[in-house]
């Protein structure tokens, strides 16, 4: 693993053309190192979601460069041919709502990604159980998502995001549906996991109570990012 987990340089994204063109991202630069958890904060319509989709290789930027570890993902007009495989193997996602698959139990929700990648079911489940144990939710391994509390669901979603040991995890408002105590628990887990698995984690949030936990914060407004040093006060 290189010293940077994910890096974007001069990234721009324009929707539409001519008079109706909208520049959602303008010359954005960002660098998140392995094991680091950074915040991405901005009001609605600031370009946050576009940046997240670009980082998640869901949309292709208009210009700029993005690298993941040593691998270049986008560079000007060029991009990796199989973005789907890239998302599966190199990027973990955690959403505001956990979006767990309702017909799979907890262990299979987590083990699904490696199973789809061709890992044997038993090995994938063993890896999933290991993660669930680390996240202290292994006792609900056989439960279905509808039987879990909100906090448990989010921990399972974190486990799913980590299962392939991706170099980067994108967390979109992961604490929004949780109370303060559970929100802090999730942040603590994300920090622990980032260190344990050398993963770069970008947390998009509006949640005032977790902002002081970041050591670095990227603010985004009108498609332009600015970097700020945060307090980095992690809960005990």
């Amino acid at each position: 693993m290189s010293k940077h987990g994910i890096r974007i340089e001069h990234l721009s994204k324009r929707y539409g053309s001519g008079d109706t063109a909208v520049d959602a991202l303008k010359d954005v630069n960002m660098n998140v190192a392995p094991g680091e958890v950074v915040g991405l904060i901005g009001p609605s319509g600031s370009g946050k979601s576009t940046l997240l989709k670009s980082l998640g290789a869901v949309i292709t930027p208009t210009s700029g460069k993005m690298t993941l570890g040593e691998q270049t993902i986008f560079e000007q007009d060029w991009k990796v041919s199989d973005l789907r495989a890239l998302r599966r193997d190199k990027i973990g996602f955690i959403f505001q709502s956990p979006y767990l698959i309702p017909f799979l139990d907890v262990v299979d929700n987590v083990a699904l990604l490696p199973m789809l990648a061709g890992v044997s079911n038993s090995e994938a489940r063993a890896r999933a159980l290991e993660l669930l144990t680390a996240l202290d939710v292994h006792h609900r391994a056989q439960a279905f998502p509808s039987q879990l509390s909100g906090g448990e669901q989010q921990r399972v979603a974190i486990a799913r995001g980590l299962i392939n040991r991706p170099p980067v995890i994108l967390a979109d408002e992961p604490t929004a549906p949780l109370d303060s105590e559970r929100a802090m628990a999730v942040i603590r887990i994300l920090n622990d996991m980032a260190k344990k698995f050398e993963t770069a984690i970008i947390v998009v949030t509006h949640d005032e109570k977790i902002i002081p936990t970041f050591k670095r914060i990227y603010h985004i407004r009108d498609g332009v990012t600015t970097e700020e040093v945060g307090e980095g006060r992690l809960p005990d």
Partner: peptide
Amino acid sequence: IREIAVLKLIGTR
């Protein structure tokens, strides 16, 4: 539909 979007996002063929 939402689960399918998630499946596609996380790399399901």
